[in-house]
Write a protein that binds this DNA or RNA. Structure first.
Lengths: 243, 243
DNA sequence: CGAAGGCTTGATATGACTCAAGGAAAGTGG
DNA sequence: CCACTTTCCTTGAGTCATATCAAGCCTTCG
C-alpha cells in the first residue's frame, strides 16, 4: 500500500544500517517517551515491536505482591518485543527521554520475509539474549553483592565506551533502585558497595549518573569470573548458520 | 549419501513427530551416555546439536573457582546446542541413562533450509528459552527458599505429568545438589525445606527420585506468583509470526 | 557385609536485609 | 534567584534467612 515510497526508504536504509533489524522500522514515525513513562505493560496484548533510536529503557517483571525484577536495560539500536506469546511477558519503561519507532508484528514478519538476509540476525540476537540471561542467572545464583556490582559496572562500562563515552566513564542512566532490582540486591547494599569501592580507590563517584573507573583490573578481579569471557567469546556469529 | 534410506525415515518421522525440530536428527545414529557422563563441555568448540530421545540432562555453567550453576534440565524431545557462538557456553551432563542423536550445525542448517516450515518452530523455541530464563531470573532475584522450591516442584510436576506420570507424582531425576545449584540454594536448605513441606502435609517423600504432591493448592500458594501464569499464558505460538 | 554416595538434621556464623534518619540533587513555584 | 518540596542517595544499628560446619543415617551397589 505504500509501495511507491518503499524504494526510497530501502535505499536510505541500505546506506545507514545495511545489516540491522532496526532497518525494518525506518518507515515508522518517531515516537517519544519521557522518564518513567511506560512503553508497554507486562500482560498487554503483544501487537508491536519497538526499535529504540535514542535513550534508555528498563525491562521489568513484577511479582503479584509488588516485588520487582529488572531483567535488562536497553539502549539505542536495541529492539524490544520479539516474542511468540500473544502477551508481553514484561514491561518496558523509559529511564530518560526515549525516541523509538514501532511496528506491528505482522508487518515486521512480512518485511522479514522480503529480507531473508535479516533472518540469521534475528536468530543471533535471540541467542545473545539467551546467553545474557544465563550470565545473569549465574550472577544471581552465586555471586556476592560486590561481585554482582563489579560485573554490572564492567558490562555497563563496555556499553558506555561502545556508545562513545570516555574509556573510563560508566554511564548509568538508571537509578540505584533500578540497579538494585537488576542485581537482586537492595538499594542500601548497592550504595554501600559503591561507597566501599570508591573508598578503595577503584571508582570515583562524581555526578549521579556517571561513575569513573580508576582501576579496571581490580574491578575485573572482583567481578569473580576471570572476566576474559567478554574478549574470548568471539562473536563468530553468522559464520556457520545461515537460515 | 544416505539418500536411499531417507524416505523411510521421513515417513516414520511424519507419523511420530510431524512438526518438531527433532525430526531433523532422525538419520543420525543413536548414542548413549550414562549418569554423570558429559555430552559436551563449556568452552568446547560448538560443532554439534543434540536431540534427546530418552533420559535427562543438566545444563551447567561453572565459575572459575568451582561454584556451579545449573541453568536448566532437559528431557526427551529437547534439543541442546542451538547457538551462534562457536564455543558452547555451558556443559551438558547426563543425569541418568541418556539416548541422544547428534548432528553437525552445518547439516542442521542445511536441513532447515529445506524445511522452511520448521523455522518458526526454532524461533518459538528460542523465545520459550528466553521466557524460561527470565522466569528463573525472577526466582533467583527475589524469591525465598520456600518459594523457589515450590515453584520448582510445580514446574517439575507439570513436566512429569506431561511425560505420563501419575497426576500427583513429581519425577526428580536429579539429585538434591542439582536442585540446589539450580535454585541458587544449598543442599541443606533444599533438604530442610522439603522436610518442612512434608511435615505440613503438602508433600510426601517416598523414594529418592520421586515426590508425591498431597496439596497442590498449598504448593501454588507458596510458589508466590499466583501461578495461574502457566495456564494463562496460552501458548499462541505460531499464530502471528511465520518467518 | 562393607564402602561410598546421597540425604537429613543440628548448631553456629554471616552477608545482606530492614528499619530509621539525615544529606544532597533536582525540580517547582514564587 | 531563592525557599520549598520531592526524589534520590548515603550511612548506621540491629535482625534474619540462609550458608557453613559437623555429624550421623539411609540406600545402593559391589
Amino acid at each position: 500500500m505504500l509501495a511507491n515510497i518503499r524504494p526510497l526508504f530501502q535505499e536510505a536504509a541500505a546506506i545507514r544500517e545495511p545489516c540491522t533489524l532496526a532497518t525494518l522500522f525506518d518507515r515508522s514515525p518517531l515516537e517519544h517517551a519521557t522518564a518513567g513513562q511506560i512503553v508497554f505493560f507486562e500482560g498487554d496484548r503483544a501487537l508491536h515491536l519497538f526499535a529504540i533510536r535514542e535513550g534508555n529503557l528498563r525491562v521489568c517483571r513484577q511479582l503479584h505482591d509488588g516485588r520487582r525484577v529488572i531483567t535488562g536495560f536497553l539502549t539505542k539500536g536495541d529492539i524490544v518485543g520479539v516474542s511468540f506469546k500473544n502477551r508481553y511477558l514484561y514491561s518496558a519503561e523509559a529511564l530518560d527521554d526515549v525516541h523509538f519507532q514501532r511496528q506491528t508484528k505482522v508487518a515486521f514478519d512480512q518485511q522479514l520475509l522480503a529480507r531473508p538476509d535479516l533472518r540469521p540476525i534475528l536468530l543471533s540476537q535471540l541467542c545473545d539474549e539467551v546467553a545474557a540471561a544465563q550470565d545473569q542467572m549465574v550472577l544471581l545464583s552465586c555471586k556476592s553483592a560486590e561481585e554482582r556490582l563489579c560485573s554490572f559496572l564492567l558490562a555497563q562500562l563496555h556499553k558506555s565506551t561502545s556508545l562513545g563515552f570516555a574509556r573510563d566513564v560508566i554511564s548509568l542512566p538508571m537509578t540505584r533502585l533500578d540497579i538494585a532490582d537488576y542485581l537482586g540486591l537492595t538499594i542500601e547494599t548497592v550504595s554501600r558497595t559503591v561507597t566501599k569501592l570508591a573508598g578503595q580507590g577503584i571508582l570515583s563517584t562524581g555526578r549521579r549518573h556517571e561513575i569513573r573507573v580508576l582501576k579496571k583490573s581490580a574491578l575485573v578481579l572482583r567481578a569473580g569470573e576471570g572476566d576474559a569471557d567478554v574478549d574470548n567469546e568471539l562473536n563468530d556469529t553468522l559464520r556457520c548458520c545461515r537460515h
